[in-house]
Computed example of a mutant assay.
Amino acid sequence: MSGHPGFPDVICLLAALPLVAGLVPPNPHYGMHTRRRHGDESHWYRINRIGGILLILASATGLAGLHAYPELAFPWDIAVSIVPLFVALAVTLLLDYLIWRAGPADG
């Protein structure tokens, strides 16, 4: 393995924990930001919880892949680490859109 390819996974995993716990209020700096979340605090917490869970799963997948295949050389070691994170981001954006289209949650 070259350098520390699992570092992005560890950082994303740690950053996702407060999102899942609902500890991050709406703000312009930290969390999932889309135009749809403006003015709807419940949507903010809901999509950030979902995004945080997906980030944790993606980070764990990347770390597991790096652990399972320690002989991977650059650039494949980086791909195993980063690709799941991009997939998690894309799925979160899709879910954000679908949740927004469905309207406000009931209770």
Rank of each mutant, 00 (worst) to 15 (best):
A102E: 13
W100T: 06
D106T: 13
T92R: 00
L23H: 14
V80R: 01
A15T: 08
R37E: 14
S42L: 12
A88S: 04
P26K: 03
H43I: 05
I82N: 06
H4M: 07
R36D: 02
E71F: 11
G51I: 01
E41K: 14
T61N: 12
A79M: 15
A88V: 02
F7V: 13
M1Y: 08
R37A: 04
L13W: 14
L66I: 08
L54T: 11
G6P: 06
P75S: 13
L23F: 11
V24D: 03
L57E: 01
L23M: 15
P25K: 07
M32C: 01
R46E: 02
D106E: 15
M1R: 06
A58T: 11
L95G: 08
H43Q: 12
S59V: 09
N48K: 06
G39C: 11
Y69K: 08
I56E: 00
A21H: 07
W44H: 10
I56H: 01
T92S: 14
H4R: 06
W76P: 00
A64F: 13
H4L: 06
T61D: 11
F74Q: 11
G103E: 05
H67L: 14
H4N: 13
S59Q: 04
E41M: 02
T61M: 02
M1W: 09
Y69D: 11
N48C: 09
L94V: 15
R36Y: 14
A90V: 09
A60D: 08
N48H: 05
E41Y: 04
L17P: 09
G3S: 10
Y30L: 01
I53P: 01
P75V: 11
L93G: 01
L94C: 01
P25D: 07
L14H: 00
I99N: 09
V10K: 03
A90D: 08
S81K: 08
A88W: 00
A16G: 06
H29S: 02
S42K: 09
I99T: 12
A60L: 08
N27Y: 00
H67P: 00
G51C: 08
A21P: 01
G52H: 04
P84L: 02
P28A: 13
Y45K: 13
I99P: 05
G3Y: 04
I82F: 14
F86T: 02
P25S: 10
G31E: 12
P5S: 09
L17H: 10
E71D: 15
G62Y: 10
W100V: 03
E71R: 12
R35W: 07
D77A: 10
L19I: 12
H4E: 00
L98M: 05
L66S: 06
L54A: 14
T92E: 07
D96C: 04
R46H: 15
R35H: 09
H67Q: 12
A68F: 15
P5M: 02
A68K: 13
A88C: 05
L17D: 05
G31F: 05
P5C: 08
R37L: 15
R35C: 03
D9S: 15
Y69S: 10
A102H: 09
A60S: 11
W100L: 06
V20N: 02
P5N: 07
V20F: 00
A58F: 05
H29K: 01
V87Q: 14
S59P: 06
S59W: 11
I99K: 10
R101L: 03
F7M: 15
H38G: 12
